[in-house]
Design a protein around this nucleic acid. Structure first.
Lengths: 259, 259
DNA sequence: CGGTAATTTGAGCCGTATCAACTTTAGTGG
DNA sequence: CCACTAAAGTTGATACGGCTCAAATTACCG
């Protein structure tokens, strides 16, 4: 491994793990903030090491002994469960500032794989546990992060409870856009680092339905598919309307002159 | 209201808040354990008060200022979001030992309503925050609980990602049974404190589909619907098979002589 | 022992999964 | 730089499950 570790401009090199989430208490206008102080990051840095994963590389598997938690520095990771019959259910896409390594009784609950090349801090679980039990400050920030992830998981469940493919995709795109914004990235277009099949496995529809629905949204003038990995939202009102749509026959009548 | 507070035998009266979850590290065979020591419960007791809610009573509403977190002592609560058009999405059913009051930037994320009569500890959020920031021990247990809830939310999302109504119901019943067992309750029959419409709103199908699928499972000899609120599982293997079923056309062939 | 809410049952339609063929993209080596 | 190949994505046809609407039935509360 090369000794030189290139980190994003927003990530001061050598600063140690960084955890980002929206606050529990103070209002920050929906922005994710850096939860750890420089000092806290330094305290975590002494027990962690930098690791890299190639695109598509497995990070850990469900059921394995969970010896580490990872803090993503750059790149995108998917957390998923393997189903009978080679398809999978994706529980979450994880981005810089996120923690991965959800465990239960000492074992990983999900599998994790790098969707893009990934750089991360690897934090041994035992050392982290010791650290947490002594350090109420960091611990409080970790609670904030886990609560943030809980809200995200509930939003994912809500997305999956929708029935129409276009509605699910609209919600998915809104989630991605909001996350991009809250990470302070450019929001002119939505970046889709994952494959269509990953999107399908996250929103709970077939690959074909993903393709068809995206095309339909494009021909309705709501999106522009610039290329496979980049989408521009042309009509945010229209996208929001589709995201709030319930069953087909519920909507058509009633509210007049809203379109 | 009667001044006498009847509490379940497993809950020592006046012991203070009690939080239950499966462990992150040590293996406990899937059993939920009491996370707080007597001393920790006492420390929380000084900042909390007992409250009661009637069946169907609203506990809080999404968007309201989140001034309290609740710890259920007995009864069942549903956490939900209201959708356009009077139906709702249920994010979770909560039982004794659970915490409710998920917040974001100072406001409740979901609404909460008592499904049965409920007794709970009400813990002011500000006091809890202060307590947590000083008390690394309790804080660690709260992390364990929130992580537990995160896993539950992911399981819910997985359930919702399934397409067949019978599969969703089978997973739902398995979840309820496992939770009953891990709470140490009788597992001969599954107790359904909620209405059919609540089940529908939790598993993401119509009320009619809930009814039909339960009846179908009954006529297949997998369940016995003893009455509206009690179900007995007659064939756990069969239920598990349905819970693992993917799309209809994936399964029919292959494995012979399994029925 | 009504009155009403909750649940069950029936009929028809619509959207999505599946299967299958085709097009485009990206990656590889000459 | 381009040809070649495999992977990824798109498009079309059909079948089936669940949703909606509608009505009957059952349980619950006073």
């Amino acid at each position: 491994m090369d000794a030189r570790t290139r980190i994003l401009p927003s990530e001061p090199p050598g600063g140690g793990p960084a955890i980002a989430a929206t606050a529990l208490w103070g209002a920050a206008g929906g922005l994710r903030m850096q939860l750890l102080t420089e000092e806290e990051r330094a305290r975590l840095a002494v027990i962690s090491s930098i690791v890299r994963f190639a695109k598509g590389e497995q990070i850990y598997r469900q059921g394995e002994a969970a010896d580490s938690v990872f803090n993503i520095v750059c790149g995108v990771v998917k957390s998923y469960r393997v189903l009978a019959g080679e398809r999978e259910h994706i529980a979450a896409f994880l981005f810089p500032g996120d923690l991965i390594g959800l465990m239960e009784e000492g074992n990983y609950v999900n599998s994790a794989r790098a969707v893009t090349p990934v750089t991360a801090y690897r934090i041994p679980a035992a050392a982290l546990k010791t650290r947490l039990q002594k350090d109420a400050e960091i611990e409080f920030h970790v609670i904030s992060k886990v609560v943030h992830d809980l809200r995200e998981a509930q939003r994912h469940a809500f997305l999956l409870s929708q029935h129409r493919a276009a509605t699910k995709l609209a919600l998915f795109l809104q989630m991605l856009e909001n996350q991009q914004i809250s990470r302070g990235e450019n929001a002119d277009e939505i970046y889709l680092p994952m494959r269509r099949s990953d999107i399908a496995d996250y929103v709970g529809i077939s690959i074909e339905a993903v393709s068809r629905s995206l095309r339909a949204l494009e021909s309705d003038g709501i999106l522009a598919l610039k290329n496979r990995r980049h989408i521009e939202i042309l009509d945010r009102r229209g996208l929001a309307a589709i995201a709030m749509q319930r069953e087909p026959r519920d909507v058509p009548a009633r509210r007049a002159g809203q379109d």
